[in-house]
Amino acid sequence: MAISDYARIEQAILYLDAHAREQPSLDDVAAHVGLSPFHFQRLFTRWAGISPKRFLQVHTLVSARRLLAERHSVLDTSYAVGLSGGGRLHELFVTLTAMTPGEFKLGGEGLTVRHGIHPSPFGDCLIAVCERGICGLHFLSDEPAEEALVSLRAQWPRATFMESREATAAWAERIFPSRPPREPTPLSVLVKGTPFQVQVWQALLRISPGHVATYEDIARSIGNPNAVRAVGSAVGDNPVALLIPCHRVLRKTGVFGDYRWGPARKKVMLAWESLRYGAEDEVGEASRVVP
């Protein structure tokens, strides 16, 4: 998906969310994003897997308060409901590997990091990989490629960097498959962080798509309920967007909060996941109520 398409989707979802009480028509939303109703309907349905009308019927799925009330992920019991294999994204199982303290001190010495820019449902992204898995994923519309590379190099200061879109293309296809895989695909993520950061990132993997958690939930789940502020810092330092799902963390007040790659993108990502993973029952219920 071209970044211009993502920009239109973002505008459309924010518009639908802001004007839900007014029940805007397809023509209204299409005009807002500068497309004909026919082309906007096709674009939105291809992206969301659901029509704009159905999205409007279930628009509260992207409401933080409703997410917290009805789709709230209780991390302490996540393993009991089939999440013992780690977090899920699409049909992917993400396994997080942390560098040892000795490797941490080396700063990536001996690693060759290959990177490339690829399209995604949420705009262009920079993907970085090494022989041990994905070591970076940054969205670019709010963070230029040059800044993303600076951040990546700071994370791995002694690594060797090579631009190689060919090397990262296969990984991009696994993260954002053009068609759902027949079987779940294990996906390894390599991170460099303090023990506390790694603990927080591992907790994030237990939040399943379509669900959210609060910073307080994560602090409790790692056995440190008073470390809410430190948890927030660790969430913000997440180096691998989407796969380590920091976008699924909300404030307990129901506010979406900040997001390293833009608060609007965070809202769109949660909307996409809610539609893909939790909207089926909601849509069925809505269709019985809304003509």
Rank of each mutant, 00 (worst) to 15 (best):
E109W: 03
L75T: 09
P239I: 02
L152W: 00
P101Y: 06
V255K: 15
A98F: 01
H247N: 03
L190S: 08
A264S: 07
M269T: 08
D142C: 05
R220G: 00
A154Q: 11
T253K: 05
A145W: 10
R54A: 11
R114N: 04
V62G: 09
I175A: 02
E146Q: 13
A203V: 02
L67V: 04
A203D: 02
D142T: 12
I3Y: 10
V58S: 07
K252H: 12
M162N: 08
Q57T: 04
P177T: 08
V74G: 06
V283W: 09
L26K: 03
F176W: 15
G236K: 10
Y259D: 07
I3W: 08
T100H: 05
P186Q: 07
Q11Y: 03
F122S: 09
A227H: 01
E70K: 09
S4W: 10
E273L: 08
R42K: 15
D281G: 08
D281K: 10
R276T: 11
R251F: 11
V249W: 04
L89C: 09
V198R: 01
A286T: 04
G254E: 04
V200W: 00
E22C: 12
F161V: 00
I207E: 10
C130K: 05
N226T: 15
D237L: 10
Q199D: 12
E173W: 06
T112V: 15
T95K: 12
R251D: 09
P239H: 05
T112R: 13
V231Q: 00
V74K: 11
P239A: 03
Q11M: 11
R8N: 00
V289Q: 12
R248Q: 14
T214V: 03
A169F: 03
S221V: 08
T77E: 06
P144G: 01
T95R: 14
Q23H: 15
R132V: 05
P101I: 03
S4R: 15
P186N: 05
D5C: 14
S4C: 09
H211N: 09
E280D: 08
I117S: 08
P37I: 00
R206C: 09
H32N: 11
E91W: 03
Y79Q: 12
S84Y: 09
N224G: 12
G257F: 04
E216F: 05
Y79P: 01
L111H: 06
F104E: 13
P157V: 04
L275F: 07
L137K: 01
S141K: 02
V29L: 00
L89Q: 14
A213F: 04
A169N: 01
A80I: 09
A69F: 05
G223T: 09
A30Q: 01
